[in-house]
Computed example of a mutant assay.
Amino acid sequence: MEHPSTGRQFSDPSRSFANLEAALVATMVTAATDVALLLDGSGTIIDVAMREPDLFGSVEKGWVGKSFGEVVTVESRQKVERMLTQGPDRESPARREINHPMPNGPDLPISYSLLPLTKNGMRLALGRDLRTMAALQQNLVETQLALETDYARLRSTETQYRVLFDTAAEPILLIDAAARRIIDANLAARQRLEKDGKRLVGAPLSSIFGQSSQGDVEALIAAARRSGESESDEPRSVRQ
Score class of each variant (00 low, 15 high):
R8I: 15
R8A: 10
Q9L: 14
L20I: 11
L20N: 07
A22N: 08
A22G: 05
A23V: 06
A23M: 03
A23L: 11
L24A: 11
A26T: 09
A26M: 09
A26R: 13
M28F: 12
M28A: 14
V29E: 01
V29T: 04
T30H: 02
T30Q: 15
A32T: 09
D34C: 06
D34G: 07
D34Q: 05
V35N: 01
A36H: 01
L39C: 06
L39S: 03
L39W: 01
L39A: 05
L39K: 02
D40T: 07
S42V: 07
G43A: 10
I45T: 04
I46D: 10
I46R: 14
V48K: 01
V48E: 05
A49L: 13
R51M: 07
R51Q: 12
R51W: 00
D54H: 10
L55T: 13
G57P: 05
G57D: 03
S58C: 07
V59K: 03
K61I: 06
G62L: 06
V64I: 15
G65Q: 07
G65V: 09
K66F: 04
F68M: 15
G69Q: 07
V71M: 08
T73F: 05
S76D: 02
R77Y: 01
Q78C: 04
V80H: 02
E81A: 15
M83W: 00
L84I: 11
T85F: 06
P88T: 09
E91G: 08
E91S: 14
S92M: 11
R96N: 13
E97V: 15
I98T: 00
N99R: 12
H100C: 13
H100M: 13
M102D: 06
P103S: 12
P103F: 10
P103E: 11
P109V: 09
I110P: 03
S111G: 12
Y112H: 10
Y112V: 06
L114N: 05
G121Y: 01
R123S: 13
R123E: 04
L124R: 03
L124Y: 01
D129I: 03
R131V: 12
A134H: 06
A134C: 02
A135H: 09
L136D: 10
Q137F: 07
N139G: 13
N139I: 07
V141N: 08
E142P: 01
E142W: 01
Q144Y: 04
Q144E: 15
E148V: 08
T149Q: 14
